[in-house]
Write a protein that binds this DNA or RNA. Sequence first.
DNA 1: CTTTAGCAATAACATATGTTATTATTTTCA
DNA 2: TGAAAATAATAACATATGTTATTGCTAAAG
Lengths: 191, 191
Amino acid sequence: MHNTLEYIHKMILEVVDIDAIEWANYSAMFEIKEFKKKEVILNVNSICQNVYFVNSGLLRTYFTDKNGRESTFHFAQEFDLATDLESFIQQTPSKYHIQALEETQVVVWPHKMVFDGYKNLRNGEKLGRMLTEKYFILFSNKIQSLYTKTPLERYNEMNKRFPTILQRVPQHYIASYLNITSVHLSRLKNE
Amino acid sequence: MHNTLEYIHKMILEVVDIDAIEWANYSAMFEIKEFKKKEVILNVNSICQNVYFVNSGLLRTYFTDKNGRESTFHFAQEFDLATDLESFIQQTPSKYHIQALEETQVVVWPHKMVFDGYKNLRNGEKLGRMLTEKYFILFSNKIQSLYTKTPLERYNEMNKRFPTILQRVPQHYIASYLNITSVHLSRLKNE
DNA sequence: CTTTAGCAATAACATATGTTATTATTTTCA
DNA sequence: TGAAAATAATAACATATGTTATTGCTAAAG
């Protein structure tokens, strides 16, 4: 937990100036929560009220299409964050589910805290912009990968960048991350 | 041109307060540019220095994969904007091309103007945050569509939301927008 | 006006990916 | 510990999508 708060502190310091007193007051508002394995912590169509930083464990965000088929959009490991930013920003119904794949502890950044920060922190607005930009770049890379790479290429890419994920989660989640079936992934691995 | 500036002014007023004097000083820095049909105005690996608002004509942003195949990411019609925001923000090599599909006139929002605005406008940072959020939401919708819908569904969606585009551009650009071949699109339409 | 290049449809075939069912193994948990 | 559920591989078949080539039509350019 302290590690994650330290991580957040550093991340914020990288983009804006925030002094010790501000940080002490601000960071006191973070909350800690625990989720059980397989617990769904955000449902489609509910309003996303939190940004979650993973302290320990693993979260995944995923879509379901009209046939109920799931596509995993993102795995959030230690220090990663998970949220439906669109729902969070606009306070509109969420398009994702978020689910804990393991027993997971998170640092919670509640909506009110984020939005109050825009006003109350000296560099609140700038912080908001920079973090939105960071998150945007995640999406931008995702889109490029989806448009220009084959499932096999994306599997290899994943293998390089998140090697431990492949050990931690069942293969059908990996397949759903690649937006293919587990049968097809099994075939691709035989090459 | 005046229409587009008015449009931008309104868009800004929707999200932050900007008074007449500020706007007069600020908007004087916009530039106007014209591009010929088929002209490429941003190349992959160059640094994106501008946000373009289309005043008249039509732009498209697109990827190329390692086989040189193109995927159109977005069509920007009148009042729409086109940029590679990731490259623009970070001043890193662009991942997209941007090309004029028709004789096109744009309002140019140069990088320096945007970044100076963060400091010099009273609500510059907030404006930056809100516009980044807006652009993020575009991407967020795109991703959901890519993950959960079939090419045919995305064709029909496009038909509803941008009916004029289908008349304005050759079908193989539409196919590249759907990330399928023009042969396949032709087949899908026979249903 | 005429020539050329670009475009859209189509057919035939090839490849990628999905579906269903079966089986063996592993994990979960009562 | 033992039964039930989840998992991964595999095979056989079905469907979606890509590739190449051909044709006729339309738009662009000299």
